[in-house]
């Protein structure tokens, strides 16, 4: 079943007299359980696309169907509930609450969860933090975390509400190779559980853990092809030279 359907989607930003065409008509269909890497040069419109997919922004033209629902028809409240229940979003710039512990940052989506799916928010937050290897940093505030650690807090926050769709905008941008592969291992594990994943990345090495690669240039899709043989992060980690020595806190 198709989860995300984009039809001729465009997004134009008005900048005074001029306007910036970040997306110029993107059509894309992503089925449930896919793992897509979105690539492209800087400024090609990747983040703009992710924001639209994450129901954070509205397209200037075109249609976006999420699980068959036309998103432009939804009101602010329904959009909020979709963001809360269906989507996990990892921002390129982390977007963590300052002066708030990693644990509380991760718990934040559950604060607005009305479904009560997760019985013990704090325990769940701890569990996802451990999943990204940050169990020992739960009570640190973002300012006292490294860039890579902040990025992993952001990933944990995106995972806590057990979303059906995970949208990650350069989740490995600040991570070393080993930790990046660890994150990919987490993503692949989630993907096997049936979660649809869209991942923006610059690195071809990371993109090849996905099952499909979509490339953007100047707001248009220039390439959309399946990955012949996706790499397996778990086996790469096992075969890693000097297992676990690359990051100090990578494993717990």
């Amino acid at each position: 079943m198709d989860t995300l359907v984009l039809r001729d989607l465009s997004r134009t930003f008005a900048m005074g007299d001029t306007s910036v065409h970040a997306l110029r008509g993107v059509s894309l269909t992503i089925a449930r359980g896919e793992f897509v890497a979105i690539m492209g040069t800087s400024g090609s419109g990747k983040s703009t696309l992710m924001n639209l997919l994450g129901c954070l922004d509205q397209p200037t033209a075109g249609d976006y169907f999420l699980d068959g629902i036309q998103v432009s028809r939804l009101d602010r409240r329904q959009l909020a509930d979709i963001r809360n229940q269906k989507i996990g979003f990892v921002f390129q710039g982390f977007n963590l609450l300052p002066r708030t512990s990693a644990l509380e940052n991760v718990e934040l989506p559950l604060l607005y969860d009305r479904s009560g799916r997760i019985a013990d928010p704090q325990r769940q937050a701890m569990a996802v933090l451990e999943q990204v290897g940050l169990g020992d940093r739960a009570h640190h505030e973002p300012a006292r975390l490294s860039g890579g650690q902040q990025q992993r807090v952001a990933i944990a926050r995106a995972l806590i509400n057990q979303p059906a769709i995970l949208l990650a905008d350069e989740p490995t941008g600040n991570l070393d190779t080993h930790t990046s592969v660890e994150v990919m291992a987490v993503f692949q594990r989630l993907n096997t559980q049936g979660i649809t994943i869209l991942l923006v990345t610059h690195e071809p090495d990371i993109a090849c853990y996905a099952k499909r690669i979509v490339e953007l240039r100047d707001g248009l899709i220039i390439r959309d092809e399946p990955v012949a043989a996706p790499r397996l992060a778990d086996s790469d980690l096992l075969a890693w030279p000097e297992n676990g020595s690359v990051t100090g806190s990578g494993r717990s």
Binding site: G54, A80, D81, N84, F89, N95, Y112
Partner: peptide, 9 residues
């Protein structure tokens, strides 16, 4: 941030 993770208006 709060809205992005699902806070309603």
């Amino acid at each position: 941030i709060r809205m992005a993770v699902g806070a309603r208006p």
